[in-house]
Amino acid sequence: MSLPPPIVLSFAASDPSGGAGVQADILTLAGMGCHPLTVLTALTVQDTTGVEDIFVMDAEWVADQARTVLQDMPVQAFKIGMLGSVEIIAAIAEIISDYPDIPVVLDPVLASGRGDTFANEEIIAAMREMLFHQATIITPNSIEARRLALDDEDDQEILNLKQSADRLLQWGCSYVLIKGAHENTPKVVNILYDVNGMVRSDSWQRLPGSFHGSGCTLSSAIAASLARGMSIADSVYEAQEFTWLTLKAGFRPGMGQHIPDRFFWAEDEKPEEDSGSTGG
């Protein structure tokens, strides 16, 4: 009997379109050679055009889901996505505090790609207070980074990305990866920071169209790389490369956004006579 692959536990909401949320985490983690464990934080009514409704799980159900699988299987990384309530944040914070040596990737999902709001100010404050100091890395886009970094005293202040990263690091996380897809730059520039400043900066070609689930893919890919024992800097680069390739191979199955193809690499393994192409 072979040894199990690295195991990653994802806390996330369900997305019935399969583009984002826990479905995106499952596909990404499996695509990168990990075994995914999942804890649902919410159920959503959504498709590739946007989110219509959200049912937030009871915090005790979230805790029971996690405790049950954690008592059965060892995990090599945690990935945290959409949270839904302050009570769920508190439950997750208590759970991961029992595993201080396990890396934590926190994707602070504040809104959908269409702009549907997932987090109010109470949820943001609870994330800062209970989760940031336990996170190995948080992965906000530039809009989320600026919103997360503002406090009550300067909630109208315009922060640049370096200032935003500095603020976020003050709340105790080890690293911040700010994603630049929403910035007006020729290429997408993603910058990894720690308390000493910029760790690495990576530029990626902008691809046409908009994508549903790119942030979930990137954060899950980082968790997968960390679970396989890679350094944070190498994990961030490998995850970006994997994510960009999923977007390049992305498809538009419905009337809304494109969905990343997390199994783009499987197309390359098909014989030419069967697939008619080399994939990608």
Rank of each mutant, 00 (worst) to 15 (best):
V188Q: 14
Y237I: 02
C216E: 02
A233N: 15
A221K: 01
Y193R: 05
V195D: 13
A224W: 10
Q205Y: 10
R200D: 14
S201M: 14
I222E: 07
I191S: 13
K187N: 03
I222F: 08
A223F: 14
K187Q: 14
T185G: 03
K187H: 05
F242D: 08
G197V: 13
R206L: 03
R228W: 04
A221Y: 06
G229C: 08
A223N: 03
H212I: 14
L218P: 04
K187D: 13
N196L: 11
D202I: 01
V189W: 00
N196A: 15
E241S: 03
V189I: 15
L192G: 12
R228A: 15
D202A: 00
P208M: 00
L192E: 14
S214D: 15
G209N: 12
A233L: 03
T185K: 12
M230I: 04
H212F: 10
V188K: 04
A227C: 08
S219Y: 03
L192P: 09
A224N: 11
N190H: 06
A224M: 06
E238H: 05
G215H: 15
Y193V: 01
Y237P: 00
V188A: 14
A239K: 01
F242T: 01
S219R: 03
E241A: 07
H212L: 05
I191P: 05
R206V: 05
V189H: 11
V236L: 12
L226Q: 04
A233M: 03
P208E: 02
W204A: 11
S220Q: 01
L192F: 08
N184T: 02
Q240V: 11
Y193D: 01
W204G: 01
G197C: 06
G215Q: 14
L226V: 07
V236W: 08
V188L: 06
T185Y: 09
G209S: 11
S220K: 02
N196I: 02
G229S: 10
S225Y: 01
S210W: 05
L207T: 04
S203Y: 02
Y237W: 09
G215Y: 10
P208L: 00
A223K: 04
N190P: 03
Q240H: 13
A223H: 09
V195T: 13
Y237N: 12
D234A: 11
A221P: 04
S203T: 00
S201W: 06
I222T: 07
N184A: 12
R200P: 03
A239V: 07
L207H: 10
S225D: 04
I191M: 07
G215M: 11
F242R: 01
A221D: 03
L207G: 07
M230E: 13
H212W: 02
F242V: 03
E238W: 04
M198H: 02
N190F: 06
I222H: 10
V189L: 02
S231D: 15
T185E: 12
S235R: 12
G197E: 07
